[in-house]
Write a protein that binds this DNA or RNA. Structure first.
Lengths: 192, 192, 192, 192
DNA sequence: TATGAATGAGTCTTCATTCAT
DNA sequence: GATGAATGAAGACTCATTCAT
């Protein structure tokens, strides 16, 4: 009847809220520091709710990481749209990177997923998706090799941002991407 | 005499063993998962020994991270030597990267330091040293901008290796580095 | 069902039992010697229960001390009632003191509070309450100065009892109180 | 040869220093908070020295408490001298009390002894000495009963000072002592 | 003899997980 | 089903005491 009661009738959304809270916390405090209590408080649900929907904290953590992976997908969708509309030129990529760097939360979220993936084989596929998809957008234009190299460089840029205070300049980014993506003069090795 | 006998008294090396055990564990399970118990077991010392030499687990962790940092320095010294002897060409860099990727332990150690640095301001300087030094070697030849870009790319390569099973090909690395480090045709922006 | 069965769920009274156990122990072994384990054992609850209800041992200690303070208040209420009914004469006070001395547990409890208060500024107010209230009852009859002096003397009597085996005689108490509370012959300093 | 060597040749004085350090610490942090390490640091001796001279921490603590008792004796000697020279009048006693209250360290030291004595039967005799001796000085003049009452009052004054910020006035002290020590008008109960 | 390293018992505290209500 | 109380296993840390050197 009341709002509280209404909410209680929707286990599905409560579950989602818990996962979302866990995901937030993973980004904020690291995957190893999330606890049932922390999650319950953040989600605004009783402690028991966090064990009701998830057999194990580990399971909840995994689902939260999956949720962060979904966020990555959302950001990739945006990138794909921009690349399709404006073309995958170094200038456009540079602009996209700079937008990405400006979103500290997203940067931290991606970092958390990758960090967790290093130690957890199950997460590796998730962590790879970001660069795989980005590579996928670039392959039709530049071929697998250069596309991969560009994605690798962009990953390097993101890690640079996580441990430096000064961001890399647009000029640096664009120059490097231009160099990476330029056609080879030797036609025997053009793309693969 | 009996099994309860105290261990030999050699504080210096015991301390070193504990730090080494902690460093190993940081690399293996991540900086947030090391505990006194784990370290004591790995080092083969009683639990109390890990608290005798270090006021705080945090202090022990820091020292272990410093120890990993020293390893990084050792690797950098090797890189510098090679670059000075053979020249900092894309081919030589590629060869060095591939050597680096072959040492899974070193790769994981560097990753652990960087990962820890993301959340700990005190470690950021340590984590930056690797790319700063590498950049420093390249600056005299390529200028700051391209040197930095190359270092960023190489960091990207290392992160790629941490979450992929198949390594990047030498051709990809060399092509990309060649592109990143090539002289600009536009003389107004050559180096900085 | 089996021996591993959880205890009944009655948080309120369980909390009270823990505080009561802590209070008992403070009286018995001193505020500095109470530990979670000791309290848990005395209260007949598992160790974890003592930390579930109180964030900190300090918090538990405070609550126990408060609880002892409440006992003091109860005794004071009794004293007030007697004084109001029979008048605050030396004879009545002497009788009350002797009743107080007969209750070894109460004597020890008051001592524990005062002892703890010496080192802990937050407890000082609590420790002062006893003599302040007693003084308050006497002020209307004898004025602040003599009332305070009488309370101070009575405190001395209680401390005497804590470290002596033989109690002070009623005659001694009554004589001293008579002397302390007698009207001054010099009218210039009568009461204040 | 050096000063350090000379000191090492005098185990007796080193022992004394350790006991003195322990006594200081008991007064400062309470009898339950002294540790070997704390004592060693305060005394400026190596940790091992504190276990070399005393089988047990408890033994060291006891000796330190004895040492505090000796300090009490020294203060009593002073009091005796003053009382013998100026007479044990309320005015002289008041002056002495006020001197005593001004020495916060001594006040704390006496308190520590009494507090420890409450829980430790072995110390009770020590704790009683102060008031017994004071009583002894007054008995020849006032008789046992009034002398005891005065000593009890003075103890009350000292405890008052330990938990109040404002000291009792000289007028209050002198009035009370005058009342306690005055000759009884009824000759049947004069002294005992 | 003097020192301080070695050890393990014990302290507070946090939590995952279970399960009574 | 939903809640949060219950429990015990760790975790970090401190220290008395022992004993090699």
């Amino acid at each position: 009847m009341s709002e509280g009661a209404r909410r209680r009738r929707d286990p599905q959304s409560r579950r989602r809220e818990i996962v979302a809270a866990a995901a937030e916390l993973i980004v904020e405090v690291g995957v190893g520091a999330v606890t049932h209590r922390l999650i319950a408080e953040r989600a605004g649900v009783p402690l028991g709710a966090t064990t009701q929907y998830f057999t194990t904290l580990d399971e909840l953590r995994s689902e939260a990481l999956l949720c962060l992976g979904a966020e990555v997908d959302a950001r990739i969708a945006h990138i794909r749209a921009v690349l399709e509309q404006h073309g995958a030129t170094p200038a456009v990529l540079t602009e996209l990177i700079q937008q990405g760097l400006a979103d500290a939360r997203a940067l931290a979220a991606d970092g958390a997923v990758v960090t967790a993936a290093v130690d957890d084989p199950q997460l590796r596929a998730l962590a790879r998706r970001w660069s795989e998809q980005l590579t996928g957008f670039l392959v039709p234009v530049y071929g697998t090799r250069r596309a991969t190299a560009a994605a690798v460089f962009i990953d390097g840029v993101l890690w640079h941002a996580r441990i430096h205070d000064e961001p890399l300049s647009a000029a640096l980014l664009e120059d490097a991407l231009t160099g990476i993506l330029r056609p080879r003069t030797d036609p025997t090795t053009t793309s693969d």
